[in-house]
Amino acid sequence: MGWSLFNRKKTQSFDDRAARTASGGESLPVQDTRAAIEELSKVVQNDPEAVEIYLALGSLYRSQGEIERAIQIRNSLIVRPGLDREFKARAWFELGRDFRRAGFLDRAEKAFQEARSLGQDPVSIHREMARLTAERGDYEKAAESYGQLDLPLPQAHYLVRFAKDRFAEGNVSQGNRSLRHAIRAYPGAIEAWLEQLTQAFKAGSAAKVADILGQAMAQVAPELRFVLFEGLLTALNQAAKARESSFGEETEWSKSCSEEKLVKALLPVIETQEPDVLLLYYGGLLQLRIDDLDNARSWFEKALMLKSDFWLARLELFELSRADQTLTPFFKEQLSFFLDRARNVRRFFCRNCGLKRDQIFFNCPRCRSWHSISFRTDITE
């Protein structure tokens, strides 16, 4: 079986990355950005009329977080006498993106309107306005805008955000409709399937959770399926914490099914899948939740048979065997220290830009790529 879930991104040239940054794509690494800023600044000093360089320099400042300097560059272009209409439109457009990055959403909208009036590409304007709408928290309208742009993945994402708001208000039927709409728009919407799983768990139906999981496994990209299990474990932790602190009062997790029922319903679903290192790992974690230590150990060992250097599976096996070891108090203390540190290593990263996180994400906070999350099965990744 040829699983290749964690392919490394091919090395790209500096020019390619700089071009994407200037056009609004991924950010350059910090060291490359600073070097580019220095080089472009020198060129601009020698040729102040180089508008393209001005625009690129402003985008590099923005990617570096120097928003004020980026805005100064756009304004200097906008007020320049005799500037070509096309360049002025682009300057207004980039100014709008600068304002949005700075959190000045009203100013950003006005800048985009100016860019539109000067002939800036309407699709790019529409995309930026959709993002503005999302940042304002109007998720329903944002989803509609992305649907008009024929971008089903962000459309589905914001339908899920809208559904979560409805669930929080107690409007379960509207929330469920929005989730179904999200899956119709983009069947591989991992966030939509995860929210359905969470809601079924909250409702107390282990069988429904298992049924939804089976459907999700058939639709979600194989390299993203681990997100379902990570999300479920998070829900289990939240439910357990709510039970401990509720003092008998009703909470949103009060009707959730027991962990034992849930785990026994989920494991057969996992067993129907082709052997996969992460599915085996999460299956082992689920069995640890119900103190089925022998089976948990077996699943972690199977995970290592598929990938011998999977450090987290080795960590769990080591933890399971610790009680059988005779250790001095000093050694136990040092070992606990290093195990705790190992558990805090950020497990997730963006396949596109390499950003590391200890929590799941659907849209990379750095490069804004969708569904680029991956699991660090190799600690050196």
Rank of each mutant, 00 (worst) to 15 (best):
N7G: 08
K10W: 02
S23E: 10
G25R: 09
G25T: 06
P29D: 08
T33D: 02
A36Y: 14
I37R: 01
K42S: 11
V44H: 11
D47W: 03
A50V: 02
L55V: 04
R62P: 14
R69I: 02
R69E: 04
R74D: 15
N75K: 14
E86F: 15
R90V: 10
W92K: 01
E94N: 15
L95M: 14
D98A: 13
L105C: 06
A108S: 13
A111V: 04
V123H: 04
E144A: 13
S145G: 03
S145R: 08
L153C: 03
R161F: 10
F162H: 14
A163Y: 06
A168W: 06
E169I: 06
R177N: 13
S178Q: 05
Y186T: 02
A189H: 07
L194V: 10
E195H: 09
F201L: 10
S205P: 14
A210Y: 07
D211K: 14
A216C: 06
A218N: 15
V227D: 01
N237C: 05
N237Y: 06
Q238I: 13
E249V: 00
S256F: 10
S256M: 13
S258R: 13
A265I: 09
L267E: 03
I270Q: 02
Q273A: 12
D276K: 13
V277Y: 09
L279N: 07
L279M: 12
G284H: 06
S298M: 09
F300D: 00
F310P: 00
L320K: 00
S321I: 04
R322E: 12
A323R: 12
L327Q: 05
R347S: 15
F349N: 11
R351K: 12
C353N: 03
D358Y: 07
D358W: 01
I360L: 15
C364E: 11
C367Q: 07
